[in-house]
Amino acid sequence: MVPDALTAIHTGPPATSGKVRSFMCSSSWKYAALAFLVVAMIATGCSKKQTVKSDAGAGAAAPPAGEAAVKEAPVKEAPAQPVMTAKQAEAAQGVAVTEEKASPFADVRFDFDKSDLRDEAKKTCQEVAAYMKKNAGKKLLVEGHCDERGTAEYNMALGDRRATSVKNYLVSLGVPTTAISTVSFGKERPLDPGNTEDAWAKNRRAHFVLK
Protein backbone atom coordinates (compact mmCIF):
# COMPACT_ATOMS: atom_id res chain seq x y z
CA MET A 1 0.00 0.00 0.00
CA VAL A 2 1.02 3.58 -0.48
CA PRO A 3 2.08 5.01 2.83
CA ASP A 4 -0.07 8.01 3.55
CA ALA A 5 2.15 9.58 6.10
CA LEU A 6 4.85 11.36 4.18
CA THR A 7 5.75 13.82 6.80
CA ALA A 8 5.45 13.49 10.50
CA ILE A 9 5.40 16.74 12.36
CA HIS A 10 3.42 17.95 15.31
CA THR A 11 0.64 20.43 14.90
CA GLY A 12 2.16 23.12 17.03
CA PRO A 13 0.89 24.25 20.39
CA PRO A 14 -2.50 22.62 20.77
CA ALA A 15 -5.42 24.57 22.13
CA THR A 16 -6.00 22.32 25.03
CA SER A 17 -5.36 21.70 28.67
CA GLY A 18 -2.04 22.50 30.28
CA LYS A 19 -1.52 18.87 31.05
CA VAL A 20 -1.38 17.85 27.40
CA ARG A 21 0.64 20.93 26.47
CA SER A 22 3.35 20.15 28.97
CA PHE A 23 3.51 16.62 27.60
CA MET A 24 4.01 18.07 24.14
CA CYS A 25 6.88 20.27 25.27
CA SER A 26 8.79 17.57 27.01
CA SER A 27 8.35 14.69 24.58
CA SER A 28 7.70 16.04 21.13
CA TRP A 29 11.20 15.40 19.82
CA LYS A 30 11.17 11.85 21.03
CA TYR A 31 7.87 11.25 19.25
CA ALA A 32 8.99 13.08 16.15
CA ALA A 33 12.01 10.80 15.98
CA LEU A 34 9.83 7.74 16.45
CA ALA A 35 7.41 8.89 13.75
CA PHE A 36 10.34 9.53 11.41
CA LEU A 37 11.52 5.98 11.95
CA VAL A 38 8.08 4.48 11.33
CA VAL A 39 7.57 6.45 8.13
CA ALA A 40 11.03 5.55 6.91
CA MET A 41 10.30 1.89 7.56
CA ILE A 42 7.01 2.07 5.66
CA ALA A 43 8.69 3.78 2.73
CA THR A 44 11.49 1.24 2.45
CA GLY A 45 9.02 -1.62 2.80
CA CYS A 46 7.49 -0.50 -0.48
CA SER A 47 10.41 -1.24 -2.73
CA LYS A 48 8.41 -3.68 -4.86
CA LYS A 49 5.71 -1.15 -5.64
CA GLN A 50 5.33 1.20 -8.53
CA THR A 51 6.47 4.75 -8.77
CA VAL A 52 4.65 6.80 -6.22
CA LYS A 53 4.10 10.40 -7.13
CA SER A 54 3.51 13.06 -4.60
CA ASP A 55 0.87 15.70 -5.07
CA ALA A 56 2.31 17.42 -2.06
CA GLY A 57 5.23 19.09 -3.79
CA ALA A 58 7.28 22.16 -2.97
CA GLY A 59 4.12 24.24 -2.75
CA ALA A 60 2.76 22.08 0.05
CA ALA A 61 2.43 23.40 3.54
CA ALA A 62 5.91 23.77 4.91
CA PRO A 63 6.36 22.09 8.25
CA PRO A 64 6.85 24.49 11.13
CA ALA A 65 10.46 25.53 11.71
CA GLY A 66 12.56 22.94 13.44
CA GLU A 67 10.42 19.98 12.39
CA ALA A 68 11.84 16.93 10.67
CA ALA A 69 10.40 16.40 7.21
CA VAL A 70 10.48 12.97 5.56
CA LYS A 71 10.43 12.76 1.79
CA GLU A 72 9.29 9.54 0.21
CA ALA A 73 11.67 8.14 -2.36
CA PRO A 74 10.08 7.03 -5.65
CA VAL A 75 10.55 3.29 -6.18
CA LYS A 76 9.90 1.24 -9.28
CA GLU A 77 8.45 -2.15 -10.07
CA ALA A 78 9.91 -4.01 -12.99
CA PRO A 79 7.03 -5.51 -14.97
CA ALA A 80 7.37 -9.27 -15.26
CA GLN A 81 6.08 -9.34 -18.82
CA PRO A 82 5.81 -6.81 -21.63
CA VAL A 83 2.81 -4.67 -20.87
CA MET A 84 0.64 -2.39 -22.89
CA THR A 85 -1.79 0.14 -21.59
CA ALA A 86 -5.43 -0.82 -21.40
CA LYS A 87 -6.19 1.78 -24.07
CA GLN A 88 -3.76 0.22 -26.53
CA ALA A 89 -5.05 -3.22 -25.76
CA GLU A 90 -8.67 -2.21 -26.17
CA ALA A 91 -8.01 -0.31 -29.38
CA ALA A 92 -6.67 -3.58 -30.77
CA GLN A 93 -9.98 -5.33 -30.16
CA GLY A 94 -13.15 -5.40 -32.16
CA VAL A 95 -14.57 -8.88 -31.87
CA ALA A 96 -18.30 -8.85 -31.33
CA VAL A 97 -18.95 -11.79 -29.04
CA THR A 98 -22.04 -10.14 -27.67
CA GLU A 99 -24.07 -10.61 -30.86
CA GLU A 100 -26.25 -13.68 -31.36
CA LYS A 101 -25.36 -15.17 -34.77
CA ALA A 102 -28.18 -16.75 -36.80
CA SER A 103 -28.16 -20.54 -36.94
CA PRO A 104 -29.72 -22.96 -39.44
CA PHE A 105 -30.27 -25.31 -36.49
CA ALA A 106 -32.54 -25.11 -33.51
CA ASP A 107 -31.02 -24.56 -30.06
CA VAL A 108 -30.56 -27.58 -27.84
CA ARG A 109 -32.22 -27.05 -24.45
CA PHE A 110 -31.24 -28.28 -21.00
CA ASP A 111 -32.77 -28.73 -17.56
CA PHE A 112 -31.73 -26.49 -14.64
CA ASP A 113 -28.15 -27.22 -13.53
CA LYS A 114 -27.95 -30.12 -16.05
CA SER A 115 -25.87 -30.82 -19.11
CA ASP A 116 -27.20 -34.20 -20.25
CA LEU A 117 -29.05 -34.33 -23.58
CA ARG A 118 -32.82 -34.82 -23.60
CA ASP A 119 -34.47 -36.81 -26.43
CA GLU A 120 -35.42 -33.77 -28.54
CA ALA A 121 -31.88 -32.43 -28.02
CA LYS A 122 -30.48 -35.65 -29.44
CA LYS A 123 -32.79 -35.32 -32.45
CA THR A 124 -31.46 -31.81 -33.14
CA CYS A 125 -27.90 -33.06 -32.77
CA GLN A 126 -28.59 -35.86 -35.25
CA GLU A 127 -29.70 -33.26 -37.83
CA VAL A 128 -26.57 -31.22 -37.16
CA ALA A 129 -24.39 -34.34 -37.46
CA ALA A 130 -26.01 -35.30 -40.77
CA TYR A 131 -25.36 -31.81 -42.14
CA MET A 132 -21.76 -31.76 -40.95
CA LYS A 133 -21.00 -35.13 -42.48
CA LYS A 134 -22.53 -34.05 -45.81
CA ASN A 135 -20.57 -30.78 -45.75
CA ALA A 136 -17.06 -31.83 -44.85
CA GLY A 137 -14.85 -28.78 -44.47
CA LYS A 138 -17.51 -26.77 -42.62
CA LYS A 139 -16.62 -25.72 -39.10
CA LEU A 140 -19.09 -25.67 -36.26
CA LEU A 141 -19.00 -23.59 -33.07
CA VAL A 142 -21.13 -24.87 -30.21
CA GLU A 143 -21.95 -22.17 -27.66
CA GLY A 144 -23.08 -23.13 -24.17
CA HIS A 145 -25.51 -20.82 -22.36
CA CYS A 146 -27.27 -20.75 -18.98
CA ASP A 147 -30.22 -18.99 -17.40
CA GLU A 148 -29.68 -15.98 -15.16
CA ARG A 149 -30.02 -17.85 -11.89
CA GLY A 150 -26.96 -18.80 -9.90
CA THR A 151 -23.39 -17.62 -9.67
CA ALA A 152 -21.79 -16.35 -12.86
CA GLU A 153 -18.57 -18.41 -12.52
CA TYR A 154 -20.44 -21.64 -11.93
CA ASN A 155 -22.74 -20.91 -14.87
CA MET A 156 -19.74 -20.18 -17.07
CA ALA A 157 -18.35 -23.64 -16.27
CA LEU A 158 -21.80 -25.23 -16.68
CA GLY A 159 -22.17 -23.66 -20.14
CA ASP A 160 -18.85 -25.18 -21.06
CA ARG A 161 -20.01 -28.58 -19.91
CA ARG A 162 -23.24 -28.20 -21.94
CA ALA A 163 -21.35 -27.26 -25.12
CA THR A 164 -18.95 -30.17 -24.57
CA SER A 165 -21.82 -32.58 -23.98
CA VAL A 166 -23.23 -31.60 -27.40
CA LYS A 167 -19.81 -31.82 -29.03
CA ASN A 168 -19.16 -35.29 -27.60
CA TYR A 169 -22.52 -36.53 -28.90
CA LEU A 170 -21.82 -35.09 -32.37
CA VAL A 171 -18.43 -36.82 -32.37
CA SER A 172 -20.09 -40.09 -31.35
CA LEU A 173 -22.32 -39.65 -34.42
CA GLY A 174 -19.27 -39.44 -36.66
CA VAL A 175 -18.50 -35.71 -36.92
CA PRO A 176 -14.71 -35.17 -36.82
CA THR A 177 -13.70 -33.64 -33.51
CA THR A 178 -11.51 -31.12 -35.35
CA ALA A 179 -14.60 -29.68 -37.07
CA ILE A 180 -16.19 -28.63 -33.77
CA SER A 181 -15.11 -25.97 -31.30
CA THR A 182 -16.90 -24.93 -28.14
CA VAL A 183 -17.25 -21.77 -26.05
CA SER A 184 -19.33 -20.91 -23.02
CA PHE A 185 -21.02 -17.57 -22.47
CA GLY A 186 -22.51 -18.65 -19.15
CA LYS A 187 -25.46 -16.46 -18.32
CA GLU A 188 -24.05 -13.41 -20.08
CA ARG A 189 -26.02 -13.61 -23.33
CA PRO A 190 -29.61 -14.66 -22.64
CA LEU A 191 -31.79 -15.31 -25.69
CA ASP A 192 -34.82 -14.09 -23.78
CA PRO A 193 -34.13 -11.31 -21.26
CA GLY A 194 -37.29 -12.16 -19.30
CA ASN A 195 -37.25 -13.73 -15.87
CA THR A 196 -39.98 -16.31 -16.17
CA GLU A 197 -39.65 -20.09 -16.16
CA ASP A 198 -40.34 -19.91 -19.91
CA ALA A 199 -37.50 -17.43 -20.55
CA TRP A 200 -35.09 -19.40 -18.37
CA ALA A 201 -35.92 -22.61 -20.27
CA LYS A 202 -35.06 -20.87 -23.58
CA ASN A 203 -31.79 -19.57 -22.13
CA ARG A 204 -30.44 -22.93 -20.91
CA ARG A 205 -29.19 -23.97 -24.31
CA ALA A 206 -26.48 -24.85 -26.74
CA HIS A 207 -26.45 -22.63 -29.83
CA PHE A 208 -24.87 -23.72 -33.13
CA VAL A 209 -22.89 -21.34 -35.32
CA LEU A 210 -21.59 -22.43 -38.73
CA LYS A 211 -18.26 -20.94 -39.67
Partner: peptide, 10 residues
Protein backbone atom coordinates in the same frame (compact mmCIF):
# COMPACT_ATOMS: atom_id res chain seq x y z
CA UNK B 1 -0.85 8.28 -7.23
CA UNK B 2 -1.91 10.32 -4.27
CA UNK B 3 0.37 11.32 -1.50
CA UNK B 4 -1.13 13.24 1.29
CA UNK B 5 1.06 15.26 3.55
CA UNK B 6 -0.02 14.33 6.97
CA UNK B 7 0.86 15.80 10.27
CA UNK B 8 0.58 13.74 13.37
CA UNK B 9 -0.24 15.45 16.58
CA UNK B 10 2.08 13.71 18.90
Amino acid sequence: AVAILLALAL
